[in-house]
Amino acid sequence: MTALFATTCLGAALLAGLAIILLRPLLQRYALARPNARSSHRIPTPQGGGIAVLGAALAAGAVAFAIGLPPLGAGGGAALLAVAIAAIVLAGLGAFDDMRPLPVLPRLGAQFAAVGLVVVAATNVARIGPDWLPLGCEQALLVLAGVWFVNLVNFMDGLDLMTVAEFAPLCAALTTFALSGLLPPAEGVLAAALLGGLLGFAPFNRPVARLFLGDVGSLPIGLIAGYLLLVLAAHGGLAAAVLLPLYYLADATLTLFRRLARGERVWQAHRSHFYQRATDNGYSVPAVVGQVLVLNLFLAVLAAISLGVTSPALQVAIVALGAAGVGFVLLRFSRPRAGIAAA
């Protein structure tokens, strides 16, 4: 499995890099993101790199499934097929939205349909809720959570390398968990493939970015990551599934509540996220992304520790420690960098 995961990751990285080189002239022409008052970039930059990330991940994953994995059960195969179909649907939705913004309701309707397909397929294999909770109620709650997760990944993709800094550690951790038998091998392959796609994209997105991910990438990445976290939770890793994406969850959710409290139209673009406020408070883009990367590595270590702990009280304590780390970073981002205030 180690060789299979490594080959899948490397193959996806190479495919993504090659696809970006081939696609970039077209994206430069048809999918140019022009800066505005809410943007973090200053010059027009092509977007749509997510086409290469998703395409490479799905292609490398399909090859790995075909040649290196034992046959999947009917439920497991249906769940992975549902993820692939839903990811492609969201990618198509995002590609259209990148070029011609869609109204809110059609966009949300497609997201609910895609997430619903994945949730139903996944919960038919394994559930994470208690036995007394009706399956329909669990699925409804998971669909709402999944749609929010897909959107918050999109909201948080507003700074060079931010999505890579968030999801590369998450996917690496999930791949490691699969190697340890804490996650099914098929989901380990999917995590390794997504990791490779992100690594292939990273050189083009490092500050100052020459290419953005776009909605065509952030939406399906959120869907795939959400599915993997759902499977992890269903296999006894609920605390780990909370810890791995905790920075994104906290930044996006707290920002949403703050905007609701101020009576803002939360569906409109803004610059209120903590990572955006950090750049306004004097932090450079590399400094912000570097702190997020270090935080996510810390959260990944805590997630791994939580998987070896059986005591619910200790698991809660580990999650609380992760939340404290996230809170520390958010507090730093919300205040002027040392020396800026005095100046």
Rank of each mutant, 00 (worst) to 15 (best):
R258L: 11
R206L: 04
I21F: 10
S272A: 12
V89R: 06
A233V: 13
F274Q: 03
A95C: 10
V150K: 05
A121M: 09
V294D: 01
V326G: 01
Y30E: 04
Q47G: 09
L18V: 12
L159H: 02
V164C: 09
A3P: 08
R127Q: 13
L58W: 08
A240G: 04
V189A: 13
L194N: 01
Y30L: 07
F112Q: 08
V309S: 09
P70W: 05
V294C: 14
F5I: 11
E138Y: 12
Y248T: 04
G200L: 02
H41N: 04
P44M: 04
V316G: 14
L223Q: 02
V288R: 11
G129Q: 06
V326S: 02
L179N: 12
Y275I: 02
V189R: 11
L243V: 10
A19V: 05
N205K: 01
R335V: 13
F65M: 08
T7G: 15
L23A: 14
V309D: 01
G49P: 00
P203G: 06
A172S: 12
V292S: 13
S272M: 05
G76D: 15
L238C: 06
V329N: 01
F149W: 09
G61E: 11
N151C: 12
A240K: 06
D251N: 10
L22C: 10
P336W: 08
A16N: 01
M99A: 10
G181C: 10
D160I: 04
A64Q: 03
A87M: 05
Q28N: 02
G197T: 00
L182V: 09
A168N: 02
N36V: 14
C137Q: 11
L190A: 15
A87Y: 01
A64G: 06
V164L: 02
T7E: 13
